[in-house]
């Protein structure tokens, strides 16, 4: 296990370096002069020059890259062009809101998906299965930027049960969490169904039935437990989708998280903040994938990575 851990960590380092390089390169993809683009066409030449110096764009590319990487190593992601606040601080201030939303969305998704997947697998080929799989496909197809406003129309505007936007009480969390969790629920339900179907074909399940175990016991005590391994892995891997979905959901519901910060900073052409948000989300995603892989290795003793 230790060997695997070291090997997996070693594989993550070049990926992180690649991510940092791509995020560094982003600012250089801006057509024309990045400093001019940030300040607008009408900006005075001395202001553009000053910004160029402030961002280090007047230095050789390799030097800029070195400064960028050493900044990341120290936790210094630069300062926001609009507020002059350190980028790292602006992001850290928003982390609790995004984590709260992501956790609530995953809670909603798991709560819906697991029972739906079990019902569909056990009743394979029946109308219940068709209904569950169709519901799951619909969940994947309905975009959260449509589901969110629809939920707001029904539950906030028409019924007046829930607040339409903002953060504060648990009631504020309901609509964003359902809107963000729906697609994940659909994906998880499909995986739970497929994984449980695989297990139901295994001889040990048939053996349990032959020994007199009830159908429910054979499914829940035997097959379901083993079918959970890929489902748990998928939950970890889908964390990235939740983070990206949060960018949209936070924008719809004015949720003060990192996603909304990213979209706002794009609007203000605050590129250091854009870079910081992208880097933070990508690194969190890589970290979550690493954690998922490690948990997978622990959960399933059959897995050997040497």
């Amino acid at each position: 296990m230790l060997r695997y851990l070291v090997r997996r960590l070693a594989l993550t380092i070049p990926v992180l370096l690649g991510v940092a390089t791509l995020v560094f390169a982003l600012i250089h993809f801006i057509p024309g002069d990045p400093a001019q683009a940030m300040l607008g066409e009408t900006a005075a030449e001395e202001d553009v020059e000053a910004l160029r110096r402030r961002l280090g764009l007047d230095r050789p590319l390799l030097e800029q890259y070195g400064v960028f990487l050493s900044g990341i190593a120290r936790g210094d992601l630069g300062t926001s062009l609009r507020t002059n606040e350190p980028v790292a601080q602006a992001i850290l201030d928003r982390v609790p809101a995004t984590l709260e939303l992501a956790a609530a969305a995953m809670f909603v998704a798991i709560g819906v998906a697991i029972p739906l997947g079990i019902i569909a697998a056990v009743g394979r080929g029946t109308s219940v299965d068709h209904l569950a799989t169709t519901l799951a496909l619909m969940g994947i197809s309905v975009p959260n930027f449509w589901l969110g406003p629809l939920l707001a129309i029904v539950f906030a505007v028409e019924l007046g049960w829930l607040p339409v936007s903002g953060r504060g009480t648990p009631a504020h969390l309901v609509l964003p969490a359902v809107s963000l969790g729906a697609a994940l629920a659909a994906i998880l339900a499909r995986m739970t169904r497929a994984s449980l179907l695989e297990e139901l074909r295994e001889p040990y399940v048939q053996a349990a039935r032959a020994r007199g175990a009830s159908r429910a016991r054979a499914v829940l005590r035997h097959a379901f437990r083993n079918s959970l391994i890929p489902v748990v892995t998928l939950i970890g891997l889908q964390f990235g989708a939740v983070l990206t979905g949060a960018v949209i959901t936070e924008t719809i519901f004015a949720w003060p998280g990192i996603g909304r910060l990213l979209i706002q900073s794009i609007g203000f052409r605050d590129y250091p903040l854009v870079q910081g948000c992208i880097l933070f989300i990508a690194v969190t995603y890589v970290g979550m994938n690493l954690l998922t892989d490690l948990v997978y290795g622990v959960l399933d003793p059959r897995i050997r990575y040497d």
């Binding site: 070049p14 990926v15 992180l16 690649g18 991510v19 390089t21 791509l22 995020v23 982003l26 600012i27 993809f29 801006i30 057509p31 990235g240 989708a241 983070l243 990206t244 960018v247 990213l262 794009i266 590129y271 854009v274 992208i278 989300i281 990508a282 995603y285 890589v286 994938n289």
Partner: peptide, 21 residues
């Protein structure tokens, strides 16, 4: 290269690219 691009979740890189382009 695939590993690095897959390190970005879904739409995020598209958002980043369109933000700068």
């Amino acid at each position: 290269l695939i590993d690095i691009l897959l390190a970005f979740p879904g739409l995020l890189l598209a958002i980043a690219l369109v933000a700068v382009l």
